[in-house]
Design a protein around this nucleic acid. Structure first.
Lengths: 159, 159
DNA sequence: CCCAAATGGTTGCACATGAAACCGACCGAG
DNA sequence: CTCGGTCGGTTTCATGTGCAACCATTTGGG
């Protein structure tokens, strides 16, 4: 065991960004193994598919806004998925710059397999919490996210 | 607005790993801007420093265990910090493979500046939550982390 | 004692990603 | 109509990272 330093008091373990990151990393690392090993999907690709599962047709921009991923990241994920024919990219009359993205039959089939597994995995992780805790966790996260998004804080001065 | 798909029901926005990741990404992205822009530190380097702030002397292994970072990541972070003379690496009699890592005066000085800023920033983020919410959030996170670590679940079968 | 296996740490490699430059389509002021 | 600015998307570049191979040291079983 390392010897605590009597000097400054600052416990990284009590520091929210650090703790949250460690937890999120653990979660998505484990989940990523599922996507990756069984379906050769990385997280970005999974998110695109999951989002297309909820919306018949989308443009890259809409996916970018929904997932808050970088546009390059979305672009590359879409590219791979189109190559694998899990989604289709068709021209968009209203705007020739954008394309309509949709799930193909193959893409839908893949999700039919993957989604239940993802749900089960999530359930098994969440089973360590009570319903109440779960609810409060999501609520707190939503608040934090809004606070960060609004960006009114000291942050802006610090960048 | 995209049209919801009447097909499968699976809302990525309700999916914990996704939500948690998004939040963690937002948090550490903003924080990383502080480290990076003002002190030219990346997150790995910051974690090494923060940990050394709490423990007079550590080996890379101890840092690796404490922060759950990959050993290569720790190694590279340490390398940069030694080059910048923010930490010192001295031989270790008990084991010639490992080294003793300590903050230098410069390193301590940097932390003296950085830590209060980090704390302020964290406080401003957390100010959107009540004390109760904060407490429950940390508690729920700890539970999840333990559940993930113990790894007893469906996960192992899925890897 | 000695050698094989384990261990702390470093390095090479492949890959994912964000920022910024870029391209073609679109739009709006003149 | 037209030309500059904006916008959707792609590509290039630099960087960070995990994994696996590797090196030197240490350890433990014969």
């Amino acid at each position: 065991m390392p010897v605590p330093n009597p000097g400054h008091s600052f416990d990284l373990n009590q520091f929210l960004p650090y703790r949250l990151n460690r937890l999120a990393d653990q979660l998505s690392e484990q989940l990523a193994h599922l996507y990756e090993s069984s379906y050769s999907l990385n997280i970005a690709q999974w998110r695109v598919l999951a989002w297309l599962n909820q919306h018949e047709v989308l443009t890259a921009k809409q996916i970018r806004e929904a997932t808050r991923m970088d546009k390059a990241r979305v672009s590359r994920a879409v590219q791979v998925l189109v190559e694998r024919e899990l989604i289709s990219r068709s021209p968009n009359q209203e705007d020739q710059r954008a394309h309509h993205l949709r799930l193909t039959a193959a893409g839908r089939a893949l999700l039919d397999q993957l989604l239940p597994q993802a749900r089960d995995w999530e359930a098994s992780v969440l089973s360590s919490l009570t319903d109440k805790e779960r609810e409060l966790l999501l609520q707190a996260m939503a608040k934090l996210e809004r606070a960060l998004g609004h960006e009114g804080m000291a942050t802006s001065a610090m960048r």
